[in-house]
């Protein structure tokens, strides 16, 4: 029940957070803590120090900048759920439960790159961008370069994901999720959007080591073909007691069909 002990400090600004990380490379950033704290309680993670960025005001809230929404990384799932963002509110409704959504943050989730998280599919389908600040300054990473592997995102040690930029205008969007019956994490989640130009973009999460674009689906739909089957190769997917790679590949097809029907 108790995590191993650790040092704790709260940052009140991004600059302060970066300074703390620079001074102490072992520090682990905690946002909503809904992935980190359970792991610490089971002692699967034992960071020596936590840096709490949840309360940094400059990282909260959603604002419109031209064709983009700029979402502070510490915006909670609950705030995303009640926002004007495209697709993300529907996805947020599927994240955790109401209590998790009140603490968990969009930035925390995306930087954590859990392979069964919901947001990465939406971020890839929408073509979101990630604003990351580090000792060298600020950089913007396109969604396609954000998710590098299982629990591995483009956010490097010493860096902080500060904002997520999300295209403001899409014609239609849909997210279809197949939940693990116990954890309610995504066994497979498929996001499909029709962008401002009427082009389909799609991505899936949960099935493999990281979220990926569904290029085959995009090609088919953008050339007027049906969704069909075989959208992903099962050999590239994860398998467990509850869902084999073959079944996950099948679910990608089924959920893609259902999501596509809604856009």
């Amino acid at each position: 029940m108790y995590p191993a002990n650790f040092d704790y400090q709260k940052a009140s600004s991004v600059a302060e957070a970066l300074a703390v990380m620079a001074a102490n490379p072992d520090v682990k950033v905690i946002a909503g803590g809904h992935s980190l704290l359970p792991a610490m309680k089971l002692r699967l993670a034992q960071p020596p120090a936590l840096l709490d960025v949840w309360g940094i005001e400059e990282l909260k809230g959603i604002r419109r900048e031209g064709d983009w929404f700029v979402v502070g990384a510490m915006t909670t799932h609950a705030d995303v759920l009640r926002s004007e963002l495209p697709l993300f509110p529907e996805v947020a409704y599927e994240v955790g439960d109401p209590m998790v959504r009140n603490r968990g943050t969009i930035g925390g989730s995306l930087a954590h790159a859990d392979p069964s998280a919901d947001y990465p599919a939406a971020a890839l389908a929408l073509g979101a961008e990630f604003v990351i600040r580090g000792p060298e300054g600020e950089r913007t990473v396109p969604a396609g370069e954000m998710f590098l592997g299982m629990f591995e995102s483009a956010v490097q040690p010493g860096e902080l994901l500060t904002h997520v930029r999300i295209p403001a205008t899409v014609q239609a969007s849909a997210y279809e999720k197949f939940k693990h019956p116990a954890s309610h994490y995504a066994i497979v989640g498929v996001a499909v959007i029709r962008d401002a130009n009427g082009q389909i973009r799609a991505a899936y999460t949960g099935a493999g080591e990281k979220a990926e674009r569904l290029h085959r689906l995009e090609e088919r739909l953008n050339s007027g073909q049906p969704v069909g089957t075989g959208l992903v190769e099962s050999a590239t997917l994860l398998g467990d007691r509850f869902a084999s790679p073959e079944y996950r590949a099948h679910l990608v097809d089924v959920l893609a069909e259902r999501a596509a029907a809604r856009v």
Binding site: K10, G33, K41, P98, M99, R103
Partner: peptide
């Protein structure tokens, strides 16, 4: 917590 329902097993007292 500040009016929002949270799981108090997943919030540190210091937070």
């Amino acid at each position: 917590l500040n009016g929002d329902a949270v799981k108090s097993c997943t919030v540190l007292a210091v937070q």
